Amino acid sequence: MNTLKWLQNWYLKNCNGDWEHSYGVKIDTVDNPGWSVEIDLTDTYLEDVPFESIEEERNEEDWFYCIVRDGVFHGAGGATNLEEILDSFKTWVLSLERS
């Protein structure tokens, strides 16, 4: 399953009539140029799960990082790195489901 479809399903699984009114997924652009991703983990099974931060800097345009801070998965990256950010979240979640 492609990453975007997987993320849609993850979001839908967490919508319970309450969660989606306060939390969700935000994907935005930034002016360097690049991407910013925030995925709320509060009130999900991921809320207290440790995440090993990722920092990948190949060059000035090809970079991304991902961290979890204050109950939110944060990712940022260059203009062509959005899929890598989302894949990092997906890989983390799937590794927990297999454990």
Rank of each mutant, 00 (worst) to 15 (best):
S95A: 14
S53I: 12
S88A: 05
S36P: 03
W19T: 09
S99A: 09
D43M: 04
S95I: 00
T91Q: 15
Y45E: 15
D43R: 08
E84V: 12
F64R: 04
G78I: 01
Q8I: 13
V49M: 12
N59H: 10
N32E: 13
S36Y: 14
V30S: 15
V25T: 05
T91V: 12
F89K: 03
D31S: 10
W35D: 01
R58K: 10
R98W: 03
D18G: 09
W63F: 12
V49R: 11
L46K: 01
T44S: 09
I54D: 01
Y23A: 09
V49Q: 12
R98Y: 06
D43P: 00
S53T: 12
I39M: 06
V49A: 15
I85A: 02
C15V: 04
G17M: 12
E84M: 14
D70E: 12
I39S: 02
F51A: 08
F64D: 00
D40Y: 03
W92R: 05
E83F: 08
L94N: 13
G75D: 01
E47M: 10
E56S: 08
T29K: 12
N9W: 09
G34A: 07
E47P: 00
V25N: 07
P50V: 11
G77M: 03
T29M: 11
G24N: 07
T42L: 11
D43I: 04
N81W: 06
T44V: 04
E56H: 10
W35H: 11
N59R: 12
L86K: 06
I39E: 05
I85Y: 08
V49F: 06
W6S: 09
S22D: 15
S22H: 07
T3E: 07
N2A: 07
F73M: 07
I85E: 00
Y11Q: 08
D62S: 03
L94P: 06
E55V: 05
G17L: 12
L4Y: 10
L41G: 06
V37T: 11
K26N: 11
F73C: 02
L41N: 10
T91A: 11
D70P: 00
N9F: 04
G77W: 00
N32T: 09
E61F: 13
D28S: 13
I39N: 00
E60H: 05
E60S: 04
L96Y: 06
V37C: 10
W10S: 02
G75Q: 04
L12F: 09
L46H: 01
D40M: 04
D31Y: 06
E84I: 08
S88T: 08
D48K: 12
R58C: 14
W35I: 03
V93E: 08
S88L: 07
K90G: 08
K5E: 11
V93H: 04
L96C: 06
V93S: 04
V93D: 04
E55K: 14
N2M: 03
V68P: 00
S53E: 13
P33M: 15
E57K: 01
P50Y: 11
S99M: 05
P33T: 14
L4A: 06
E47T: 03
D18S: 14
V68T: 07
T44I: 00
L7R: 03
F51I: 08
D48W: 08
F73L: 06
W19I: 09
E60R: 05
E38C: 13
L86D: 02
L96H: 06
V93N: 09
